[in-house]
Computed example of a mutant assay.
Amino acid sequence: MLRKRLNLFNFDDRICFIVGLSIVAGLVLTLTSVLELCTSSCSEGHKYRMLGMSFGSFGMIFFVALGFIHTLSQRFEILSFTKSLLFASALGGEMMFIIVQKYYIGAWCPVCLGIAACVAVGSCALGYSYIKKHRTLIRNENKGETMKSLYRGLTSTAAVFIGFVIAFLGVAKYDPLEAAQNSIKETLAFGDSSSDIEVYLFTDWACPACRKLEPNLQKMAEACMKEAKFIFVDHVVHPETLNFLPFHLSFLLNNKPKYFQLRQMLTEISETTGAPTEDEIETSAAQLGVTYNELNYSDVALGIKYFTKLGEKFKIKGTPTMVIINREAKKGKKLTGNKEITKDNALKAIETLKSL
Protein backbone atom coordinates (compact mmCIF):
# COMPACT_ATOMS: atom_id res chain seq x y z
CA MET A 1 0.00 0.00 0.00
CA LEU A 2 1.38 3.41 -0.97
CA ARG A 3 1.37 6.33 1.46
CA LYS A 4 1.23 10.04 0.67
CA ARG A 5 4.11 12.46 1.16
CA LEU A 6 5.14 13.70 4.59
CA ASN A 7 2.84 16.35 6.11
CA LEU A 8 3.85 17.61 9.56
CA PHE A 9 0.29 18.78 10.25
CA ASN A 10 -0.73 15.14 10.18
CA PHE A 11 -0.28 13.09 13.41
CA ASP A 12 1.12 10.01 11.66
CA ASP A 13 3.57 12.13 9.70
CA ARG A 14 4.77 13.90 12.83
CA ILE A 15 5.47 10.50 14.37
CA CYS A 16 7.26 9.50 11.17
CA PHE A 17 9.39 12.66 11.34
CA ILE A 18 10.32 12.08 15.00
CA VAL A 19 11.23 8.46 14.32
CA GLY A 20 13.31 9.41 11.26
CA LEU A 21 15.08 12.14 13.23
CA SER A 22 15.93 9.67 16.01
CA ILE A 23 17.40 7.26 13.43
CA VAL A 24 19.53 9.97 11.82
CA ALA A 25 20.72 11.20 15.24
CA GLY A 26 21.53 7.64 16.29
CA LEU A 27 23.46 7.08 13.07
CA VAL A 28 25.49 10.29 13.53
CA LEU A 29 26.32 9.42 17.14
CA THR A 30 27.27 5.88 16.13
CA LEU A 31 29.57 7.26 13.44
CA THR A 32 31.15 9.45 16.12
CA SER A 33 31.80 6.30 18.16
CA VAL A 34 33.25 4.42 15.17
CA LEU A 35 35.65 7.27 14.43
CA GLU A 36 36.51 7.43 18.16
CA LEU A 37 35.73 11.14 18.31
CA CYS A 38 34.00 10.69 21.65
CA THR A 39 35.31 11.47 25.12
CA SER A 40 37.83 9.48 27.17
CA SER A 41 34.88 7.99 29.08
CA CYS A 42 34.04 6.04 25.93
CA SER A 43 37.45 4.37 25.58
CA GLU A 44 36.59 1.42 27.83
CA GLY A 45 33.40 0.80 25.89
CA HIS A 46 35.44 0.24 22.73
CA LYS A 47 36.86 -2.89 24.38
CA TYR A 48 33.45 -4.59 24.31
CA ARG A 49 31.88 -6.50 21.44
CA MET A 50 28.33 -7.33 20.39
CA LEU A 51 28.10 -10.68 18.61
CA GLY A 52 31.80 -10.39 17.83
CA MET A 53 31.57 -6.86 16.41
CA SER A 54 32.45 -3.56 18.05
CA PHE A 55 29.49 -1.59 19.37
CA GLY A 56 30.15 1.05 16.71
CA SER A 57 30.19 -1.38 13.78
CA PHE A 58 27.10 -3.18 15.05
CA GLY A 59 25.31 0.16 15.52
CA MET A 60 26.20 1.34 12.01
CA ILE A 61 24.72 -1.80 10.46
CA PHE A 62 21.63 -1.52 12.64
CA PHE A 63 20.87 2.17 12.02
CA VAL A 64 21.55 1.97 8.28
CA ALA A 65 19.19 -1.02 8.00
CA LEU A 66 16.63 0.70 10.21
CA GLY A 67 16.83 3.91 8.16
CA PHE A 68 16.34 1.94 4.96
CA ILE A 69 13.29 0.15 6.35
CA HIS A 70 11.88 3.39 7.78
CA THR A 71 12.17 5.09 4.37
CA LEU A 72 10.46 2.22 2.58
CA SER A 73 7.75 2.02 5.25
CA GLN A 74 6.48 5.42 4.06
CA ARG A 75 5.57 3.76 0.80
CA PHE A 76 4.85 0.23 1.96
CA GLU A 77 2.72 -0.03 5.10
CA ILE A 78 3.70 -3.65 5.68
CA LEU A 79 7.22 -2.57 6.74
CA SER A 80 5.92 -0.38 9.56
CA PHE A 81 5.53 -3.37 11.87
CA THR A 82 9.07 -4.55 11.03
CA LYS A 83 10.34 -1.10 11.98
CA SER A 84 8.49 -1.29 15.30
CA LEU A 85 10.01 -4.69 16.08
CA LEU A 86 13.51 -3.40 15.34
CA PHE A 87 13.02 -0.41 17.60
CA ALA A 88 11.59 -2.62 20.36
CA SER A 89 14.49 -5.07 20.21
CA ALA A 90 16.96 -2.16 20.13
CA LEU A 91 15.31 -0.71 23.23
CA GLY A 92 15.85 -4.00 25.06
CA GLY A 93 19.43 -4.13 23.83
CA GLU A 94 20.14 -0.58 25.00
CA MET A 95 18.85 -1.49 28.47
CA MET A 96 21.52 -4.18 28.62
CA PHE A 97 24.18 -1.78 27.30
CA ILE A 98 23.32 0.70 30.06
CA ILE A 99 23.76 -2.09 32.62
CA VAL A 100 27.17 -2.86 31.07
CA GLN A 101 28.20 0.78 31.43
CA LYS A 102 26.99 0.99 35.01
CA TYR A 103 28.22 -2.31 36.46
CA TYR A 104 30.96 -3.57 34.11
CA ILE A 105 32.63 -0.48 32.67
CA GLY A 106 31.91 1.74 35.66
CA ALA A 107 31.74 4.95 33.59
CA TRP A 108 29.06 6.67 31.56
CA CYS A 109 29.75 7.28 27.88
CA PRO A 110 27.86 10.40 26.68
CA VAL A 111 27.77 9.15 23.10
CA CYS A 112 26.41 5.73 24.10
CA LEU A 113 23.79 7.36 26.31
CA GLY A 114 22.86 9.62 23.42
CA ILE A 115 22.38 6.59 21.16
CA ALA A 116 20.22 4.96 23.83
CA ALA A 117 18.19 8.17 24.06
CA CYS A 118 17.65 8.17 20.28
CA VAL A 119 16.37 4.60 20.42
CA ALA A 120 14.14 5.48 23.40
CA VAL A 121 12.67 8.56 21.64
CA GLY A 122 11.90 6.59 18.48
CA SER A 123 10.41 3.73 20.52
CA CYS A 124 8.28 6.09 22.59
CA ALA A 125 6.99 7.83 19.47
CA LEU A 126 5.98 4.52 17.91
CA GLY A 127 4.54 3.33 21.23
CA TYR A 128 2.43 6.47 21.63
CA SER A 129 1.18 6.10 18.05
CA TYR A 130 0.30 2.47 18.71
CA ILE A 131 -1.62 3.25 21.92
CA LYS A 132 -3.62 6.03 20.24
CA LYS A 133 -4.58 3.83 17.29
CA HIS A 134 -5.42 0.90 19.55
CA ARG A 135 -7.77 3.04 21.65
CA THR A 136 -9.52 4.21 18.50
CA LEU A 137 -10.06 0.61 17.43
CA ILE A 138 -11.52 -0.24 20.85
CA ARG A 139 -13.89 2.74 20.73
CA ASN A 140 -15.01 1.74 17.25
CA GLU A 141 -15.62 -1.80 18.52
CA ASN A 142 -13.72 -3.27 15.62
CA LYS A 143 -12.88 -6.62 17.20
CA GLY A 144 -10.96 -8.07 14.26
CA GLU A 145 -8.60 -5.11 13.91
CA THR A 146 -8.38 -4.75 17.69
CA MET A 147 -7.09 -8.32 18.04
CA LYS A 148 -4.55 -7.74 15.27
CA SER A 149 -3.43 -4.57 17.01
CA LEU A 150 -3.18 -6.40 20.34
CA TYR A 151 -1.09 -9.12 18.70
CA ARG A 152 1.29 -6.51 17.34
CA GLY A 153 1.55 -4.86 20.71
CA LEU A 154 2.35 -8.10 22.51
CA THR A 155 4.86 -9.07 19.82
CA SER A 156 6.62 -5.72 20.16
CA THR A 157 6.73 -6.14 23.93
CA ALA A 158 8.25 -9.59 23.47
CA ALA A 159 10.81 -8.05 21.09
CA VAL A 160 12.02 -5.79 23.91
CA PHE A 161 12.71 -8.85 26.05
CA ILE A 162 14.32 -10.72 23.15
CA GLY A 163 16.56 -7.75 22.40
CA PHE A 164 17.68 -7.66 26.02
CA VAL A 165 18.44 -11.40 26.03
CA ILE A 166 20.38 -11.22 22.75
CA ALA A 167 22.45 -8.32 24.11
CA PHE A 168 22.99 -10.17 27.40
CA LEU A 169 24.29 -13.24 25.58
CA GLY A 170 26.08 -11.35 22.81
CA VAL A 171 28.02 -8.73 24.78
CA ALA A 172 31.57 -9.69 25.70
CA LYS A 173 34.75 -7.82 26.51
CA TYR A 174 37.29 -7.95 23.72
CA ASP A 175 40.60 -9.40 24.88
CA PRO A 176 43.34 -8.35 22.43
CA LEU A 177 45.78 -10.87 23.95
CA GLU A 178 43.33 -13.72 23.50
CA ALA A 179 42.64 -12.60 19.93
CA ALA A 180 46.36 -12.47 19.19
CA GLN A 181 46.84 -15.90 20.76
CA ASN A 182 44.04 -17.33 18.62
CA SER A 183 45.73 -15.84 15.58
CA ILE A 184 49.14 -17.28 16.46
CA LYS A 185 47.52 -20.64 17.17
CA GLU A 186 46.29 -20.85 13.59
CA THR A 187 49.69 -19.74 12.29
CA LEU A 188 51.60 -22.31 14.35
CA ALA A 189 49.31 -25.23 13.54
CA PHE A 190 50.28 -27.95 11.07
CA GLY A 191 47.94 -30.47 9.49
CA ASP A 192 44.21 -30.38 8.78
CA SER A 193 43.04 -26.86 9.67
CA SER A 194 39.36 -27.84 9.31
CA SER A 195 39.56 -30.71 11.79
CA ASP A 196 37.92 -30.54 15.22
CA ILE A 197 40.77 -32.70 16.56
CA GLU A 198 43.78 -30.86 17.92
CA VAL A 199 47.07 -32.47 18.95
CA TYR A 200 49.48 -30.62 21.24
CA LEU A 201 52.99 -31.99 21.79
CA PHE A 202 54.73 -30.48 24.83
CA THR A 203 58.52 -30.84 24.87
CA ASP A 204 61.52 -29.24 26.54
CA TRP A 205 64.80 -28.69 24.70
CA ALA A 206 66.93 -29.93 27.62
CA CYS A 207 64.71 -32.90 28.44
CA PRO A 208 66.50 -36.27 27.87
CA ALA A 209 63.19 -38.11 27.37
CA CYS A 210 62.13 -35.56 24.75
CA ARG A 211 65.36 -36.11 22.82
CA LYS A 212 64.67 -39.85 22.72
CA LEU A 213 61.31 -39.06 21.10
CA GLU A 214 62.85 -37.03 18.26
CA PRO A 215 64.01 -39.86 15.89
CA ASN A 216 60.43 -41.09 15.39
CA LEU A 217 58.73 -37.72 15.77
CA GLN A 218 58.40 -36.77 12.10
CA LYS A 219 56.63 -39.99 11.05
CA MET A 220 54.26 -39.84 14.01
CA ALA A 221 53.50 -36.13 13.57
CA GLU A 222 52.91 -36.38 9.82
CA ALA A 223 50.51 -39.29 10.35
CA CYS A 224 48.57 -37.25 12.90
CA MET A 225 48.55 -34.18 10.63
CA LYS A 226 46.47 -36.07 8.07
CA GLU A 227 43.65 -36.32 10.62
CA ALA A 228 44.11 -33.33 12.91
CA LYS A 229 45.73 -30.01 13.67
CA PHE A 230 49.16 -30.51 15.17
CA ILE A 231 50.86 -27.90 17.36
CA PHE A 232 54.38 -28.13 18.79
CA VAL A 233 54.64 -26.48 22.20
CA ASP A 234 57.76 -25.52 24.13
CA HIS A 235 57.03 -26.30 27.76
CA VAL A 236 59.71 -24.90 30.04
CA VAL A 237 60.97 -27.52 32.47
CA HIS A 238 64.62 -26.54 32.19
CA PRO A 239 65.49 -22.82 31.91
CA GLU A 240 67.68 -23.54 28.87
CA THR A 241 64.50 -24.01 26.84
CA LEU A 242 63.89 -20.27 27.00
CA ASN A 243 67.11 -19.77 25.03
CA PHE A 244 65.84 -22.01 22.23
CA LEU A 245 62.24 -20.82 22.21
CA PRO A 246 62.74 -17.66 20.05
CA PHE A 247 64.56 -19.68 17.38
CA HIS A 248 62.03 -22.50 17.46
CA LEU A 249 59.15 -20.04 17.27
CA SER A 250 60.69 -18.35 14.25
CA PHE A 251 61.03 -21.66 12.42
CA LEU A 252 57.43 -22.59 13.27
CA LEU A 253 56.14 -19.30 11.89
CA ASN A 254 58.42 -18.83 8.90
CA ASN A 255 59.86 -22.17 7.78
CA LYS A 256 57.19 -24.87 7.92
CA PRO A 257 58.32 -26.71 4.75
CA LYS A 258 61.69 -27.49 6.36
CA TYR A 259 60.48 -27.55 9.94
CA PHE A 260 61.50 -31.11 10.83
CA GLN A 261 65.02 -30.58 9.47
CA LEU A 262 65.32 -27.38 11.49
CA ARG A 263 63.93 -29.11 14.57
CA GLN A 264 66.55 -31.82 14.26
CA MET A 265 69.17 -29.09 13.91
CA LEU A 266 67.99 -27.45 17.16
CA THR A 267 67.98 -30.83 18.89
CA GLU A 268 71.60 -31.43 17.93
CA ILE A 269 72.61 -27.94 19.07
CA SER A 270 70.78 -28.45 22.40
CA GLU A 271 72.96 -31.49 23.06
CA THR A 272 76.11 -29.36 22.96
CA THR A 273 74.98 -26.05 24.49
CA GLY A 274 72.14 -24.62 26.53
CA ALA A 275 72.63 -21.10 25.19
CA PRO A 276 72.93 -21.05 21.38
CA THR A 277 74.00 -17.80 19.73
CA GLU A 278 72.21 -16.17 16.84
CA ASP A 279 75.29 -16.63 14.64
CA GLU A 280 75.33 -20.33 15.42
CA ILE A 281 71.66 -20.69 14.50
CA GLU A 282 72.06 -18.62 11.30
CA THR A 283 75.05 -20.68 10.17
CA SER A 284 73.38 -24.04 10.87
CA ALA A 285 70.11 -22.92 9.23
CA ALA A 286 71.98 -21.67 6.15
CA GLN A 287 73.43 -25.17 5.66
CA LEU A 288 69.83 -26.34 5.26
CA GLY A 289 69.07 -23.57 2.77
CA VAL A 290 67.10 -21.55 5.31
CA THR A 291 67.52 -17.88 6.19
CA TYR A 292 66.86 -17.35 9.88
CA ASN A 293 64.38 -14.50 10.51
CA GLU A 294 64.65 -12.95 13.95
CA LEU A 295 61.30 -12.30 15.57
CA ASN A 296 60.57 -9.04 17.35
CA TYR A 297 60.17 -9.12 21.11
CA SER A 298 56.40 -8.76 21.07
CA ASP A 299 56.02 -11.89 18.91
CA VAL A 300 58.33 -13.89 21.17
CA ALA A 301 56.50 -12.66 24.27
CA LEU A 302 53.16 -13.58 22.71
CA GLY A 303 54.46 -17.05 21.88
CA ILE A 304 55.72 -17.57 25.44
CA LYS A 305 52.36 -16.47 26.87
CA TYR A 306 50.51 -18.77 24.49
CA PHE A 307 52.69 -21.78 25.33
CA THR A 308 52.41 -21.03 29.05
CA LYS A 309 48.64 -20.73 28.81
CA LEU A 310 48.43 -24.11 27.07
CA GLY A 311 50.56 -25.72 29.76
CA GLU A 312 48.27 -24.34 32.47
CA LYS A 313 45.10 -25.23 30.57
CA PHE A 314 46.08 -28.89 30.15
CA LYS A 315 47.85 -29.11 33.52
CA ILE A 316 51.13 -30.32 32.04
CA LYS A 317 53.41 -31.65 34.79
CA GLY A 318 56.31 -32.95 32.71
CA THR A 319 57.63 -33.59 29.23
CA PRO A 320 57.18 -35.13 26.80
CA THR A 321 53.38 -34.95 26.95
CA MET A 322 50.89 -35.21 24.11
CA VAL A 323 47.35 -33.85 24.52
CA ILE A 324 44.73 -34.82 21.94
CA ILE A 325 41.33 -33.10 22.13
CA ASN A 326 38.06 -32.94 20.26
CA ARG A 327 37.32 -29.22 20.35
CA GLU A 328 33.58 -29.59 19.68
CA ALA A 329 32.94 -32.55 21.99
CA LYS A 330 35.23 -31.08 24.67
CA LYS A 331 36.80 -34.49 25.27
CA GLY A 332 40.46 -35.39 25.25
CA LYS A 333 43.25 -37.88 25.84
CA LYS A 334 46.66 -37.30 27.42
CA LEU A 335 49.74 -39.39 26.62
CA THR A 336 52.90 -39.02 28.70
CA GLY A 337 56.42 -40.31 28.27
CA ASN A 338 58.12 -42.18 25.42
CA LYS A 339 56.28 -45.43 26.06
CA GLU A 340 52.82 -43.85 25.66
CA ILE A 341 53.62 -41.30 22.95
CA THR A 342 53.77 -43.51 19.89
CA LYS A 343 52.34 -43.26 16.41
CA ASP A 344 49.85 -46.10 17.03
CA ASN A 345 48.63 -44.69 20.36
CA ALA A 346 48.24 -41.18 18.90
CA LEU A 347 46.28 -42.38 15.86
CA LYS A 348 44.10 -44.61 18.03
CA ALA A 349 43.26 -41.68 20.31
CA ILE A 350 42.47 -39.48 17.31
CA GLU A 351 40.08 -42.06 15.85
CA THR A 352 38.35 -42.51 19.20
CA LEU A 353 37.86 -38.76 19.64
CA LYS A 354 36.68 -38.30 16.04
CA SER A 355 33.85 -40.76 16.67
CA LEU A 356 32.41 -38.67 19.51
Rank of each mutant, 00 (worst) to 15 (best):
R3A: 10
R3T: 11
N10K: 12
D13S: 13
R14S: 12
I15Y: 01
C16D: 14
L21Y: 03
L21G: 12
S22E: 08
S22C: 07
S22W: 06
A25L: 15
T32D: 03
V34N: 07
T39Y: 01
C42T: 08
C42V: 10
K47P: 02
S57Y: 10
G59S: 09
M60F: 11
I61V: 15
F62A: 14
F63K: 02
V64H: 01
F68V: 15
I69G: 04
H70P: 03
E77C: 00
S80P: 00
T82D: 10
L86E: 03
F87T: 06
E94N: 07
M95T: 12
I98Y: 03
Y103M: 04
I105N: 05
G106R: 03
C109A: 07
G114W: 04
I115D: 04
I115K: 04
A120M: 10
V121T: 12
S123R: 00
S123Q: 06
A125N: 02
G127L: 10
S129Y: 04
H134T: 15
T136S: 15
L137H: 07
N142Q: 13
N142L: 11
E145G: 02
M147D: 11
S149M: 06
Y151S: 13
A158T: 07
A159W: 01
I162Q: 01
I162T: 10
V165S: 05
F168N: 11
V171Y: 09
A172Q: 14
A172D: 11
L177G: 00
F190R: 04
S193M: 14
E198M: 12
Y200N: 07
T203H: 08
D204I: 06
W205C: 08
L217M: 12
A221I: 09
A228F: 01
D234F: 01
V236P: 01
V236F: 08
V237M: 12
L249N: 06
L249F: 04
S250G: 08
L252N: 07
K256A: 10
P257E: 09
Y259D: 05
E268T: 14
S270D: 05
T273P: 04
E282F: 00
L288F: 05
E294N: 01
L295T: 04
Y297N: 15
F307A: 13
T308W: 03
K315D: 15
G318N: 12
T319S: 11
T321F: 08
I325Y: 03
I325C: 10
N326D: 08
T336Q: 12
G337T: 05
T342A: 09
K343E: 15
L347D: 08
K348Q: 13
E351V: 00
L353A: 06
